[in-house]
Design a protein around this nucleic acid. Structure first.
Lengths: 119, 119
DNA sequence: TGAACATATGAATAATTGTTCATATGTTCA
DNA sequence: TGAACATATGAACAATTATTCATATGTTCA
């Protein structure tokens, strides 16, 4: 029934102690999924560049598009994803919409990632 | 020539001060790419589950496959990606290969992500 | 109200990617 | 050495996704 019965592990010398220990520490499926989804949002260089831009200053869609040399549409699509993940928020000022970082986890996570890739 | 000339920003009221500020703080293209690639590795629930497993104990491929109810091949492919990103390392013990976390950034990053999704 | 500006969004396309299947490589032990 | 075990890997397929294009929504101001 399980994958192990029909596939790779019929004859493997398993280590039940380790398997139980690992399963005990494993978060719920929902949490794992949410966590992966969050990282997936960071896993695109366009979105990383948008977040970096917001490190410095609140900024409107038009300025973002100009800064990143992208179309307004592409930027807008990515901002929507960032907003759904609650990494950014926005406020309207007249015709413009300004985006800003929703909280400081973003900086912390990106800095932690930078430490890793800088080694 | 630039995208802005032909597309979205011909008539936009840009804010040069903000744009310059943002560009000054923007890391190199290479660094941005590496950073996005790193996050992309975290952005898959299978790999997150593997990393969680390694929080508890070094573990061999077979036990990982059994624990996560996946085929040995799928686990092995993902371990390769994690290893290329230097998030895990491995040592051989006889026929088995044991994997373990390469450094503590992994824990820090995942915990930081958890804080965000737990709000 | 109507025209111009600024942003958002749906559909389509191209590119990326996780898993499976088949098989290759590496290790142990009789 | 040969057989069985454990892991790694290449090719193929299905699913996801970033961007583009066309257009809709929302705002200001004459």
């Amino acid at each position: 029934m399980a994958i192990s019965d029909v596939d790779c592990c019929e004859t493997y010398e398993l280590h039940p102690d380790r398997i139980n220990l690992v399963n005990a520490g494993m978060p719920d499926e929902d949490k794992l999924y949410d966590l992966a989804e969050l990282f997936k949002v960071f896993g695109d260089s366009t979105r990383i560049r948008i977040l970096y831009a917001l490190f410095e200053s609140d900024i409107c869609v038009c300025d973002l598009a100009e800064t990143l040399q992208m179309t307004q549409s592409a930027v807008s699509h990515q901002l929507k994803i960032l907003k759904q993940s609650k990494l950014v928020s926005s406020r309207r000022e007249g015709k413009s919409v300004f985006y800003f970082l929703a909280d400081d986890h973003v900086r912390t996570m990106i800095n932690q990632g930078l430490e890793h890739v800088s080694e």
